[in-house]
Amino acid sequence: MKEHLNPEDTALVIVDVQNDFCHEDGACARRGSDVTAAQAIISQLQALIDTAHGNGVPVVFIQMTLNDKTVSDAWSKRMEENPIAVCEKGSWGTEFYKLSPASEDIVVEKHRYSAFIGTELDMILGNLKRKSLVITGVATNVCVESTARDGFMMDYHVTLVQDACAGYDAELHDATCKNITNNFGLVLNAADIIEYWSSPVPMVG
């Protein structure tokens, strides 16, 4: 676990915990998605954030935004059967859901599923000398998994927090957790990470 969770090497990444993805009045709920799992991870996320702050682990909030300059033809046609706009830049839907970045936290805007595509995330992590990512957020099998896969392919140690990420289909959430375990990194619970970061003596693992 040291390679994946050492506070001096690790960043906590929170993907797309925004009104359109989590709130009962957001775009995904209006499409018919069940957002209760997304809402249920907030307490674990806040505990992780608090522990990260207390142990010098940078916290990076990923925020999806879209406008006419970032929506391509391919992107706009990906869900033609249910074309409700999501995360329009400047809208209530883009605001974070029940979480507020602290002054020292970093916010990275993205325009595609992966937080590494077309963003400064890799440069920021490099400047912070971070080589390990603890990844959380919404939706597990879409933006979270896309970010985790790209992070691994860019040679980061990846840890997915299975009870601090959520999707709209439990089977797809579980499939991503299994896929990460088999191919891309560790899958742990928030309590495992909090215990490791809070231990006065680094635990062997």
Rank of each mutant, 00 (worst) to 15 (best):
H4R: 11
H53R: 06
Q39I: 11
G118M: 08
I49Q: 04
V142R: 08
K98H: 11
L133A: 06
N189V: 05
L125I: 00
A139T: 14
W92P: 04
E120D: 15
P58Q: 03
Q44K: 15
V108Q: 06
P83Y: 12
I194M: 04
C143K: 14
R30K: 15
K77N: 11
P58E: 02
Q44T: 11
D50K: 14
E80K: 15
V86E: 13
I135F: 09
D150P: 00
N127C: 08
K98P: 01
I106E: 07
T176D: 01
Q46F: 04
V134E: 05
R149M: 02
G151C: 08
E95N: 13
G90C: 10
E88H: 13
Y156C: 03
D174I: 04
D105W: 01
V59N: 06
I14F: 09
A47R: 14
I62N: 03
E109G: 04
Q44Y: 06
Q63T: 05
L186D: 08
E3I: 10
K2I: 11
P58Y: 07
V59H: 09
I41R: 05
P83G: 04
T36M: 07
P58K: 02
I106L: 13
A11E: 00
Y97A: 10
N6L: 03
L133R: 05
I117T: 13
D150N: 09
G185W: 07
C143Y: 09
G137T: 01
L186M: 13
I106Y: 15
V57N: 02
G32P: 03
L48P: 02
E80G: 15
M123P: 00
H23G: 01
S100I: 12
V201I: 12
I106C: 07
F184G: 03
Q39W: 12
L186V: 08
T119Q: 03
A37W: 03
Y168E: 09
S33I: 04
V204M: 14
C177W: 04
T51E: 10
L188R: 13
E145P: 01
Y97P: 07
S114C: 05
I62K: 06
V35D: 02
I41H: 01
M64K: 11
K2L: 13
E95G: 10
V187Y: 00
T147S: 15
R78L: 11
I42V: 14
N127V: 07
T10E: 00
S103A: 13
Y97I: 10
Q162Y: 14
D150F: 14
S33A: 13
D169E: 06
F61P: 01
A11C: 01
S33H: 15
M64A: 12
V17D: 01
E80S: 15
A139H: 08
Y196F: 13
F96G: 05
T36V: 06
L66D: 09
K131I: 08
G93N: 01
D9P: 00
I49C: 10
I49F: 08
D9S: 12
L121G: 04
H157W: 11
K77M: 07
G167F: 05
A139Y: 10
W75N: 07
L188V: 06
D9F: 08
L66R: 15
